[in-house]
């Protein structure tokens, strides 16, 4: 596992509108509980894929508006 990277905060995704739409559609018709679980699984898949502790910790930090 890499531990040394920094979080990429510049645009890095092609056809981002399609991806965003897929994200919203996935939650359609789900209860709050199921939505929360979907989000949790998605986060777990992605942090494993990223596999860089520093990047993930930085993203957690930046996502927490209270810490901004």
């Amino acid at each position: 596992m890499k531990t040394s990277g920094t979080l990429n905060t510049t645009a890095n995704l092609q056809d981002s509108d399609t991806v965003y739409e897929a994200l919203i559609n996935a939650h359609e018709g789900l209860s709050d509980k199921d939505s929360a679980k979907l989000n949790a699984k998605l986060i777990l898949f992605l942090i494993n894929h990223i596999g860089d502790k520093q990047v993930i910790l930085e993203a957690i930090d930046k996502s927490n508006s209270q810490s901004a």
């Binding site: 509980k33 679980k37 949790a40 699984k41 777990l44």
Partner: peptide, 10 residues
């Protein structure tokens, strides 16, 4: 709890 259960499911 949601995260814990997500881990167990996956």
């Amino acid at each position: 709890t949601v995260f814990r259960d997500a881990v167990l499911e996956l």
